[in-house]
Design a protein around this nucleic acid. Structure first.
Lengths: 237, 237
DNA sequence: TAGATTGTTAATCGATTAACAATC
DNA sequence: TAGATTGTTAATCGATTAACAATC
């Protein structure tokens, strides 16, 4: 009993980050009317190794049946519950530029679990517009709006300049989870979670590997041409 | 000499993922005309611990001066070189919907290191439009365009449905680095890198922690009310 | 029972971090 | 030289994975 409690609480961060991937793969299986899935099949669909998948799921409890596999619907429910998706989290987006527009219209929010409840901007040319069925409000309304209906997740889609200030206001208004699209580090109190989505970081990581591949094939070419030259010289110089 | 080569090649993946963050922090310092920075200062700006920062930088070489710190410009150059940003990588974006529009216009691409060279879509209503100064081409032009000018990085900004097919075509056209915004797993050969940017995964991870906080404060409230009741009962029941 | 597949163990690997000798 | 800060060591921690006993 104590053990169970302990394991229930301490789900490794790496496991939490993979649960959404499993959930998506299970959703696709459910749509194809698959009722049961083995760890091996689900692992392939999610792009992970099956031992890792079983270890991850074991942190949630024993929801599989030996010799049979996992019931798709039941596992969807258990993962959803663990991730907190059996309730709707109210989301506010600050910064309705190109990206904010795209985010407001993103179907991913419509997925069970989230509801966009408010859009904010400071630009008078944007305030008052209707985006994805919601009016864009002046940022100065943030405190009033959040007092009336608490915001669980704040999305920062502003430029880097005002991002920290916007974040501070969100936190002051009671937001304890922030999704940051601005290209900068946000400083927040310990009880606030920030996750960062950063296009240019991702591109730079790809560039690093791209360069390594170019160097590797360049080195291979060098080795090949060296071998050719060595052969042409007819020796083992 | 051999040791140096070995350490040069094997930069840990976790370190590579942080180099862009250091680069950004250094850029901000350079703008404020800071010429020298200590590992402690830079670590704070980047939001990491200074031992980790020094360890990360040590994988690139010995670019600091004991007792003094790091020269900002020199470190910017060394990290840029390591990440492969001293050349421009040609980028193509496939899928010019809301998100594709935002990506094409994103200033992050303009950052030294990347150049958007082509935009593709299949929707006849979008093809022919000019977005961020580039014409949107029919996806069927992909092979011809990439034959004329190789594409290093392909950005998949389509819905999940066609994403795998689009990815297969990119790979067949010689693309070996893919940035995937579609909410699905992409299967690629071993020599192709895929990185994934996934809004709903990030939201779900935030929801998990948000729920844990709610449960924790709920539990705290329960404990408090239990304590109150226990006190009211005047005992240690 | 025989076959299949889970849940868990234990070994391995990689990342983090405090501490400090080296050295500017 | 005295003070400051790097680069590295070594201990610790967490994540991954193969293997297999448990069990449907």
């Amino acid at each position: 009993m104590k053990d169970e409690q302990v394991s229930r609480r301490g789900i490794p961060e790496a496991t939490v980050a993979r649960l959404p991937v499993y959930l998506r793969a299970l959703g696709a299986l459910a749509e194809r009317d698959t009722t049961t899935v083995s760890s091996e099949e689900l692992a392939v669909a999610a792009g992970v190794n099956s031992a890792k998948l079983r270890k991850d799921l074991s942190h949630l409890g024993s929801y599989g049946v030996r010799g049979v596999g996992y019931d798709v619907d039941y596992l969807v429910y258990q993962i959803s519950r663990e991730l907190g998706l059996t309730q709707d989290w109210p989301v506010a987006i600050v910064g309705i530029g190109n990206l904010g527009h795209a985010l407001a219209g993103y179907a991913g929010f419509a997925t069970r679990g989230f509801e966009v409840v408010a859009l904010f901007d400071t630009d008078p040319r944007v305030v008052g517009e209707t985006v994805a069925g919601l009016p864009v409000l002046p940022l100065d309304d943030l405190e009033e709006v959040s007092a009336r209906r608490p915001i669980s997740i704040g999305v920062v889609a502003t430029p880097a300049g005002p991002a920290q200030q916007v974040c501070d206001r969100l936190v002051a208004a009671g937001v304890r989870s922030v999704l940051n699209f601005a290209p900068c580090v946000l400083n927040v109190p310990d009880d606030v979670d920030v996750r960062k989505v950063d296009l240019s970081t991702e591109l730079q990581i790809l560039a690093f590997h791209e360069q390594r591949k170019a160097l590797a094939s360049g080195a291979a070419l060098d080795a090949a041409s060296l071998a050719t030259r060595t052969l042409a010289a007819g020796g083992d110089a």
